[in-house]
């Protein structure tokens, strides 16, 4: 009798346990990946993927694959494991050419979203528009440390100054030919 009752209890509990386990498993399966972009103070673009399950709860410990769209198709750039809060982060340089990026977690293309990280349109267009903006500013005010500028300027400046001196000598040669005053060398 006691044995039967045990089996009866077990019979009732089994479906409940199965439902519970299935539910727990469903709660850990990535169902959606949300992508957001933040630009930090350093100017770098941080792409954050938030992996959630069907109930919207974060899923940690799952591999998130980030891809960028190129002329050839989607190019894998990083695989990051999501943290306990479901987030996975990659950093893109601000000058990145990537126009579109997506991330997926799990198999079967579950939860793929895209976010645009396109560069802002250049304020100066090539061609005539750029001619109107001619300024010494971009060329002379440089982020490079002065020694580099000075080194290049010293070498190039030295060469071109020598050229100028040689042209000056040629001008004197011409002047001497016209009968002008010139520093005469002893006749060879």
């Amino acid at each position: 009798m006691r044995r039967r009752s045990r089996w009866a209890v077990a019979g009732w509990l089994m479906p409940i346990l199965l439902v519970g386990v299935a539910g727990a498993a469903a709660a850990g399966t990535p169902a959606k990946v949300g992508l957001t972009r933040q630009t930090g103070a350093d100017g770098l673009a941080r792409i954050t993927a938030v992996v959630t399950d069907a109930d919207g709860k974060p899923v940690g410990g799952t591999a998130v694959t980030f891809r960028v769209k190129t002329a050839f198709g989607w190019l894998t750039v990083a695989e990051v494991e999501s943290r306990s809060d479901g987030t996975a982060v990659i950093v893109l340089p601000p000058t990145s050419l990537h126009a579109e990026i997506n991330a997926d977690a799990g198999e079967g293309g579950v939860g793929t979203l895209a976010v645009s990280v396109a560069r802002p349109e250049p304020t100066v267009r090539p061609g005539r528009g750029m001619l109107g903006t001619l300024s010494l500013q971009p060329g002379l005010i440089s982020p490079y440390p002065p020694p580099q500028i000075l080194f290049v300027a010293l070498i190039l400046g030295g060469i071109w100054t020598t050229y100028a001196y040689l042209v000056f000598l040629l001008a004197r040669l011409r002047r001497a030919g016209r009968g002008g005053v010139g520093r005469h060398a002893p006749d060879a």
Binding site: L169, R172, L173, R174, A176, G177, H184
Partner: peptide, 17 residues
């Protein structure tokens, strides 16, 4: 020709250059 006449001064400048 830059007015070349083969003068000593011209030769001197040419040689230097």
């Amino acid at each position: 020709a830059l007015g070349w006449r083969g003068l000593p001064a011209q030769k001197h400048h040419l040689e230097t250059v």
